[in-house]
Amino acid sequence: MQRVNMIMAESPGLITICLLGYLLSAECTVFLDHENANKILNRPKRYNSGKLEEFVQGNLERECMEEKCSFEEAREVFENTERTTEFWKQYVDGDQCESNPCLNGGSCKDDINSYECWCPFGFEGKNCELDVTCNIKNGRCEQFCKNSADNKVVCSCTEGYRLAENQKSCEPAVPFPCGRVSVSQTSKLTRAETVFPDVDYVNSTEAETILDNITQSTQSFNDFTRVVGGEDAKPGQFPWQVVLNGKVDAFCGGSIVNEKWIVTAAHCVETGVKITVVAGEHNIEETEHTEQKRNVIRIIPHHNYNAAINKYNHDIALLELDEPLVLNSYVTPICIADKEYTNIFLKFGSGYVSGWGRVFHKGRSALVLQYLRVPLVDRATCLRSTKFTIYNNMFCAGFHEGGRDSCQGDSGGPHVTEVEGTSFLTGIISWGEECAMKGKYGIYTKVSRYVNWIKEKTKLT
């Protein structure tokens, strides 16, 4: 034993070699072989497995989906700052455009905790909710729209109204504003409101030439003092309507412009014939205590009207009353817009006519005020429907199939267009061939041609 100890002390290297040989010859039971080890760690190889990531292109799944990435790591994937920024906006807080917040056709661009709407022409605001041009839906104005110097929408209202708090709607500024039905039992019968379409306001006024200088022999019209197929109006439903009495009662109609003036057809009036105007009328054979009678003290036909040349060209006249009318729910003026808007309103496509005229061709006159909704007829169809001249200051309205029309005794009465609950004068009943005849239409004086003249002559002093 002493000898062994001496050998170990003198030859430590020998001992180490012996131990190493023993270990190498022993069977290893701690580690699995290569094949079995792979069965336990069965993990798919990654895209760049075996390579240094710093030297390969980034992978979106590896960089940002398996674990949260930084902007720089995302930049490695896209290799483009702009594309990385677009991805980053949604990656950080989701897609803010998912709810489609942009209105009126706006395009949404996502941002971090926010979004941006790219608005089409005519709109602005956070969600493109603000109209900035009158060309689109009248700028959301209830009545009139004008573009300011910086191309912003400025709404306005006709006389007797003021802008509401929203700067879009119009509200009454006087007790009985024009064009409004205020009798409670008839307010439910107000005709369907007309909503502004998209309009090209630059070209809204037709490029028409008034044929002022045409000389033409007097034409022989049949029954051209021209509501057939209409309905009984309720008291106060058309408070701007008046009836004219002269040699015979209810020979023509008219509309209240203001307390002192009536507008009617020029062919209705004769110099030297006494005319009485009755406002607030409903049943011409009954006294309903809503009527107001006034005498006409002055007749002003349009300066281009000449019955000797043509009885229905420039067929418009103004009547001055001896005493002002007292405005109330049964006696209310009709609204008159400017030339541009009167023309736009007419193009809405349908209007209402009213009167006490004959209820059928050569038949009896109506006792109760009649009204009828009539569609506008395109000019080409209008011209083809008659052998008589249709001037540019006239328009056609009615039904091709016949059966409904204005008729004798309705002449001078109103053709009105309702705009968001307020009625505007767009025409004056003038003439036609018979009444409600198939293929024939009622012919009306186009008020847009005469609004400046009306307003100039009827100013209240």
Rank of each mutant, 00 (worst) to 15 (best):
E73Y: 08
E79G: 12
T381C: 12
R379F: 14
E61D: 09
V199L: 09
C335V: 00
N100E: 06
A192K: 10
T84C: 07
M65F: 09
V227R: 13
Y22P: 02
A26F: 03
V326S: 14
L14V: 07
V181Q: 12
G125D: 03
D131I: 05
P301N: 09
D232F: 07
E401R: 13
N203F: 06
L318R: 00
S169P: 00
V56R: 06
Q2I: 10
S99H: 13
I284Y: 09
C155R: 00
C155A: 00
Y352R: 06
M437D: 12
N113Y: 04
F238G: 02
K137N: 07
K89W: 04
F78K: 15
E116G: 14
V154I: 07
V416F: 09
C268H: 00
N304H: 07
Q90R: 05
F196I: 07
L19G: 01
A366E: 14
E323Y: 06
N48Y: 09
Y330G: 05
P239R: 00
N135G: 13
A250Y: 06
Y444D: 01
G253Y: 05
N452E: 12
Y22H: 06
V199I: 10
A250G: 12
L23D: 02
Q90K: 15
V153C: 04
T225F: 05
S114W: 09
E86F: 07
P101N: 15
W356L: 13
I428Q: 04
R449V: 15
R191T: 04
L211I: 09
N213G: 14
K146A: 10
P177I: 01
Y91A: 15
F221I: 11
I316N: 00
K234I: 09
K126V: 05
K168W: 13
V263S: 02
D200E: 10
T209D: 10
N104L: 03
D150I: 08
E10H: 12
R364S: 15
S406I: 14
K274Y: 06
G179Y: 00
T417E: 00
R46G: 10
I214N: 03
K293M: 06
R191L: 10
N452K: 11
A317R: 00
V227D: 13
Q90D: 12
V181Y: 06
W261M: 02
E54V: 03
A192G: 06
Y352D: 05
A37P: 15
V92H: 06
C141L: 00
F224K: 10
V326L: 12
K126I: 12
S423C: 05
I390E: 10
E291D: 04
M8G: 09
L24N: 01
Y91P: 06
K438F: 11
G432T: 10
L189N: 12
E86V: 15
E231T: 07
D378R: 12
I336Q: 01
K339L: 11
E401W: 13
V4F: 10
V374M: 14
V243G: 03
V263P: 00
E270I: 05
E418Q: 15
S217K: 03
T85I: 06
F238V: 05
L376F: 12
C97A: 02
M437G: 14
S329Y: 07
N306E: 07
G403S: 14
N304M: 09
E98T: 12
N310I: 02
Q185A: 03
R358C: 09
F221G: 04
E27D: 05
E86Q: 15
L52Q: 11
E35M: 08
C102Y: 01
G106A: 03
S217I: 11
S430M: 06
Y444I: 13
S365E: 15
D405F: 14
V199T: 12
T417R: 02
L19C: 06
G432I: 05
V243C: 04
K455C: 04
P414K: 01
Y330N: 06
T84N: 15
F388K: 14
K126F: 10
H302I: 01
H34L: 04
F224H: 07
T445S: 06
I297E: 04
E79Q: 15
P333A: 06
G398D: 05
S25A: 05
E27P: 01
P197F: 08
L189M: 06
K137M: 10
I300V: 12
